[in-house]
């Protein structure tokens, strides 16, 4: 059986009682100290997981969550109540993590072009792909670790789009707005990020390595 995806803010199984959520929002708007703590305890763990997917296990991730909550407390009056609180907070922490990414010092990155497929002059694959091992034969925990390690190797501009689209499940238009680029750029980066990750995983997962 395929493993579950990380819990999405839109996942109905995590739906809170709407009346309880409404009470919490009213309490937050009246600057109730207990309500602040309740919000952090209810959503902090998941928000930290989102920040870590974008920023890695650095100190930047809890810092981004902290900044996201402070921003959420300040703007709680603008929460319209049509979206769920978790969805609203998810967008805020994604924004805070992206701000951190923009300001932190760049680490040296492998150019994405080195990880894209190459072709002969006649348009055929230079290195034809080989089948991968069937999923059932792979040790799941090991594969998850491998995938996370290799996602971390992608250049920031591509890794960010991959995480936002394929893990956080934002749509192309949302990602384009967050990154202030057009939809075509998001699609190109997503495709290249997936291709580059496929290249990085290929030596580990192809059937002929056994």
């Amino acid at each position: 059986m395929a493993p579950a995806r990380p819990e999405s803010p839109n996942d109905p199984k995590s739906a809170p009682d709407p009346a309880a959520e409404e009470r919490l929002v009213i309490a937050l708007r009246s600057r109730d100290e207990d309500a602040y703590e309740q919000l952090v305890r209810a959503h902090g763990g998941r928000m930290l997981a989102v920040a870590r997917r974008l920023l890695g296990d650095s100190e930047d991730a809890p810092d981004a969550v902290q900044e996201a909550f402070v921003s959420a407390f300040r703007s709680i009056d603008s929460f319209e109540g049509q979206a769920r609180l978790s969805t609203w907070l998810h967008r805020i922490v994604v924004n805070a993590a992206l701000m951190k990414l923009r300001t932190r010092r760049r680490k040296p990155e492998q150019p994405i072009d080195d990880l894209l497929p190459t072709f002969e002059a006649d348009g055929h694959h230079r290195e034809p792909g080989k089948p991968w091992q069937p999923a059932a034969r792979l040790e799941q925990r090991e594969v998850h670790r491998l995938v996370r390690e290799n996602i971390a190797k992608l250049p920031d501009a591509y890794r960010t789009v991959l995480v936002l689209r394929d893990i956080e499940e934002l749509d192309t238009a949302e990602v384009a707005a967050l990154l202030e680029v057009n939809a075509g750029v998001v699609k190109t980066r997503l495709h290249r990020a997936r291709q580059a990750l496929r290249t990085l995983l290929d030596p580990h997962l192809r059937a002929d390595r056994e």
């Binding site: 579950a4 089948p131 998850h144 996602i151 893990i167 496929r198 995983l201």
Partner: peptide, 15 residues
Amino acid sequence: DSYRRTVELVGTAWS
């Protein structure tokens, strides 16, 4: 096939 598998693996890497 490997491209599709990559997309699936990304979606479940933190599960």
